[in-house]
Amino acid sequence: MIAVYIIIGIVVILLIMVIATYNGLVRLRNQVKNAWAQIDVQLKRRYDLIPNLVETVKGYMKHERETLEAVTKARNLAQQASSSGAGERAKAEGELSSALARLLVVVERYPELKANQNFLALQEELTSTENKISFSRQYYNDSAMKYNNQTQMFPSNMVAGMMGFKASEFFEVTVAEERAAPKVSFP
């Protein structure tokens, strides 16, 4: 009789452990999803900012049409890539980031532009959006690493395997070198 109770006890304890692990995994997976949504919000915000920026800058930068075109093109490509996987998306966004960085370097040559209130406000928004993208990416990657560790480490990997928890992809932006970025010729 005692043996039966012991077995029942062990089963109950195991069940509780499995449930706790499962819930922990679900919580982490939701955190990862949530973090991904945050990146999405910030990337969309950047798509919205760029036409505004190009419009403001255009009047001042008569000789930089190529740079501006490159930014617009990179933005459109990134927006198209937004429905594909993390890897491909990260690449497109990385190119957009470097195109923007090049534009902001060029801006330094135009002091009148740097005195424009409208531009200054936009620049603050853009800087902050860039930061928000990298912070949301950072939080996403941290969450993904925590989640992946749980799905791969013993004993939680057993529960993860049974319930179909799959490791999530990291969002690594390989910031392309200026030379490596695609040259866009203006027709």
Binding site: Q38, Q42, E124, E125, S128, N131, K132, F135, S136, Q138, Y139
Partner: peptide
């Protein structure tokens, strides 16, 4: 913006 950045991070 900075507060929002840190909220996100």
């Amino acid at each position: 913006n900075i507060v929002e950045e840190m909220r996100i991070a």
